[in-house]
Design a protein around this nucleic acid. Structure first.
Length: 274
DNA sequence: CACGAGACCTGTTCGC
DNA sequence: TGCGAACAGGTCTCGT
């Protein structure tokens, strides 16, 4: 599911709090319930509980698609993968379907990791670079400009779509936002990265930033039964719009498979360059 | 090393 | 209505 805008939306909600729950920041962890053991990627369950119990949550951040929850000595890293969700819920007697990990807070709320497909994972580490060390730059990193991005692209022979999904190249894009960005930039998804001109590279970078910002401003995308309150799905230009008309030229949007992932594009606005 | 297929999971939707 | 196939926002591993 969640790509950068959805993860950012979740982080923003946890930091801010709202009418239904307080901020997560400052909360003390007084109980831990692991409901699906594989959720804990590292360390083992006993050490996980020992090191997290009675810790205070100080900061919540995002890096790529990871949520980072900082206490004094440890970082809890959470990756939602396809169907995970993280939210605060007033303490209840019974857990909900698909709850995988619960941190019980002193203020009467539970921090709930719920994940129907069980792909999501969490790590508890003292040095986050053990897990995040191979991530590429953040899309909004000010050091990433047209020239730098062009040079990064020119070193890769890979097709641009799978390259944008590669988290070691750029952190945060997934299937939705890469299709949307390539459409805005007018680049065919199968174009080799090193065939993209500097001008097109600049256009691609600004398109990536534009669609991510749109996603964040609309609180992410909510599709299928995985509804999280976002509205960006109503603004999709190509993603899951196979057979519908291109918002720019009216041609039919096509769907192809690239690296086993559905890929949507407009054959007229994103001409095949090879 | 690069690439593609398969694995990990459950739930919904589609086609016959 | 029923049933199997296809598909889903991600990433890792294995084989060629």
């Amino acid at each position: 599911m969640p790509e950068l805008p959805e993860v950012q939306t979740i982080v923003n909600g946890l930091i801010r709090g709202d009418e239904s729950h307080p901020s997560l920041q400052g909360s003390w962890i007084r109980g831990i319930e692991i409901l699906w053991m594989k959720t804990i990627q590292y360390p083992g369950p006993d050490e996980f509980i020992n090191r997290l119990l009675n810790q205070q949550i100080l900061l919540i951040e995002r890096r790529g698609k990871f949520i980072i929850i900082r206490s004094r000595e440890n970082q809890l890293l959470i990756h939602l993968r396809m169907s995970g969700d993280l939210f605060l819920r007033p303490r209840t007697l019974e857990f909900a379907k698909h709850d995988r990990l619960i941190l019980m807070l002193e203020n009467g709320y539970d921090l709930v990791f719920n994940d129907p497909r069980k792909f999501g994972r969490v790590w508890l580490v003292g040095d986050e670079s053990e897990v995040l060390g191979n991530l590429g730059p953040e899309p909004f990193d000010s050091d990433l400009n047209e020239t730098v991005f062009y040079e990064k692209l020119s070193k890769k022979k890979k097709q641009i779509k799978p390259l944008l999904l590669d988290q070691t190249f750029l952190a945060g894009l997934g299937n939705i936002y890469s299709d949307e960005a390539l459409f805005l930039a007018g680049i065919h998804p199968l174009t080799r990265a090193d065939q993209i001109s500097q001008e097109k590279a600049g256009k691609l970078l600004s398109s990536i930033r534009k669609v991510l910002l749109e996603g964040i401003q609309n609180h992410g995308a909510s599709i299928d039964w995985v509804y999280r309150g976002g509205e960006f799905q109503t603004l999709f230009r190509v993603y899951r719009r196979t057979g519908l008309s291109c918002p720019t030229c009216g041609d039919e949007i096509q769907r192809i498979l690239v690296g086993q992932r559905s890929t949507h594009f407009c054959p007229h606005c994103q001409p095949n360059s090879h």
